[in-house]
Design a protein around this nucleic acid. Structure first.
Length: 542
RNA sequence: GCCCCCAUCGUCUAGCGGCUAGGACGUGGCCCUUUCAAGGCCAAAACGGCGGUUCGAUUCCGCCUGGGGGUACCA
């Protein structure tokens, strides 16, 4: 079915009716990976034969999405609306050979016909009335200016079998095939005609497309046959569903892959994520560079069942990729998210956040205390549980004095000082699940918030809702200006500082929220953030 | 209604007649830890149902059920 020794040429053929969504991006990626692995071409075709649904700017949007995801195409995209005469000619050829015929039925008659078929519980398809019109009469009526469409004349018996690279062998009975329209009365081709004509013209070797096309695949095969053309190989990939098991691209999640860019996702993570929607290399490796994806990709390993997009996995992947960036690279990626901060200022700060980021958009909030005055505390917020105002004031004053005397604020990369991983032995003991709160719950709330933010296409994550009566500290964290998020990374430089932050009154405190300490920080962010880069931050390649 | 596709943990998946059914995300616990993370260890969690074929079925076949898609002068 596929050509022997023909060069590999594939295409992604969106219709410009909107943005590039995750499912479309995946179809494009599968095409792209296949082409690059085989040393073939990856082409673009704009299917804009439906003038009614066309959306201006959509093509640019789709192209930008593809570019962001690092999919580059070869050759100039083919625009179907510019090729009308070619389709006309193709339809004429089919008319001539008897593989198609003119249909003069009005939309009203067709509607009535279908209504009757439905009432009789019969399959709804064209009753082929016009197929019986003699050629001469057909020509005469057309010449007289009567409106018509061109329909494909399907064989009435036998079967058509498709060898699909993903779905396997699929057989259709020809008598169930509809004489569908090839050329509309406005002179534009339908998808079916344009598809066959263009894939032939573009010398496409493999058609990798959504499995929504599977039911019409036999018609397409028959069409190639009618033209006496060698058909391409087919691979119908199952669609991507949203969390509600409904096809993606409709109501939920980001409709446009570019929204993922806005939400702070790395293109490499998104590529990795969508590649694994319905495909798996069959190994345990789950982090892949584009090059590795190209090397590992295998059309025949694509799952035949639809995949549900698990956005939590994308969050995790994104964190993994962020951690693998060099600090400079990370700073460059974060820079657009913090337009008021020069990238050189950002760079030394990266080790403070690199281990904790899940999206780039988390960075401004984590780094905020470097650049902003606190927006004010209510005194009661500063008093830890079990303390009173007086002892708290004393502690804060002591902290301010001690920290204020420090001159060197080198950072030890908190949490990374030779800290052997503990081995947990007494594990299986007492695994009572504490539902509703605890660290896990906090994480879940965050993930939900992140997604909520994505849905709303907002940059800012809404503050996690308080959980009254349960985890007081978690609640406080949510309510306080989130300076505390940076608190822990406030530095400690030597034992002295350590003594201070262990000070009696401070043990339940987030050091970073201490204004005096913060002030000191703000005084000289550069010097202060001389970061220990010897840590675990060089992770080139994996 | 008719046609087509699909069916392993909540999710993505490995499996291609004999496996303690493996991995990942997420979840829970422990460890590490001044916070949040990250990391390490551990745990709970799946072959939709019924019939066949076979010495033996998650795996092959059929039916059912359940999803999904198509059924336009949309792509």
């Amino acid at each position: 079915m596929s050509q022997v020794n023909e060069p590999i040429r594939v295409r992604y053929a969106p219709s410009p009716t909107g943005a590039l969504h995750l499912g479309g991006a995946r179809t494009a990626l599968f095409n792209y990976l296949f082409a690059r692995q085989k040393g073939g071409q990856f082409l673009l075709r704009i299917e804009d034969t439906d003038r009614a649904r066309l959306k201006p700017g959509s093509q640019e949007q789709i192209e930008e999405g593809l570019q962001w995801l690092r999919m580059t195409w070869d050759e100039t995209p083919l625009i179907q609306s510019e090729r009308q005469p070619i389709y006309q000619q193709a339809a004429d050829d089919l008319l001539e050979s008897g593989a198609a015929y003119r249909c003069f039925c009005t939309p009203e008659r067709l509607a009535q016909m279908r209504a009757e078929q439905r009432a009789r519980h019969e399959p709804e398809r064209y009753d082929r009335r016009c197929r019986a019109i003699p050629r001469e009469e057909s020509d005469r009526r057309a010449a007289a200016g009567e409106r018509y469409v061109v329909r494909q004349a399907m064989p009435t018996q036998g079967t058509t079998t498709l060898q699909d690279l993903v779905m396997g062998t699929v057989t259709f009975r020809n008598d169930t095939l509809d004489d569908h329209v090839l050329l509309k009365s406005d002179g534009f081709p339908t998808y079916h005609l344009a598809f066959a004509v263009d894939d032939h013209a573009m010398r496409i070797s493999h058609v990798i497309r959504g499995d929504g096309w599977l039911p019409s695949a036999p018609k397409h095969l028959l069409l190639f046959q009618a033209f006496n053309w060698l058909p391409p190989a087919f691979a119908h990939v199952p669609l991507v569903l949203g969390p509600d098991k409904k096809p993606l691209a409709k109501r939920h999640g980001a409709k446009d892959v570019l929204e993922y860019r806005e939400a702070g996702y790395l293109p490499e993570a998104v590529d990795n994520f969508i590649a694994f929607l319905g495909w798996s290399p069959g190994t345990d490796q789950d982090l892949f560079t584009m090059e590795q994806l190209i090397a590992a990709f295998d059309l025949t390993k694509i799952q035949a069942s639809p995949a549900v997009a698990n956005l939590e996995r994308l969050d995790w992947l994104n964190g993994q990729f962020i951690r693998r960036l060099s600090p400079d690279e990370l700073a460059a990626r974060i820079a657009p998210k913090m337009p008021t901060v020069p990238v050189q200022t950002l760079a030394p700060l990266m080790p403070l956040v690199q281990e904790r980021l899940r999206t780039l958009n988390d960075a401004p909030e984590m780094l905020r205390f470097f650049f902003e005055e606190p927006d004010g505390y209510r005194p009661e917020q500063l008093i830890p549980k079990g303390r009173d105002a007086a002892t708290t004031a004393t502690a804060l004053t002591t902290a301010a004095t001690t920290l204020g005397s420090l001159t060197d604020w080198a950072h030890g990369v908190a949490g990374r000082r030779h800290r052997p991983n503990g081995d947990a032995t007494a594990d299986r003991v007492d695994q009572q699940a504490r539902k509703g709160h605890g660290p896990g719950a906090t994480r879940t709330r965050r993930a939900q918030a992140r997604r909520a933010g994505l849905e709303a296409s907002r940059r800012e994550r809404p503050v996690a809702p308080a959980d009254p009566g349960h985890d007081v500290r978690a609640r406080d964290r949510a309510e306080l200006p989130r300076v505390g998020a940076g608190g822990g990374i406030v530095t400690r430089k030597d034992d002295r500082a350590a003594v201070v932050d262990r000070g009696d009154a401070l043990d339940d405190f987030q050091l970073g929220s201490i204004g005096a300490a913060r002030d000191h920080h703000v005084a000289d962010s550069q010097a202060r953030a001389r970061v220990d880069r010897s840590g675990n931050h060089q992770r080139a390649g994996w």
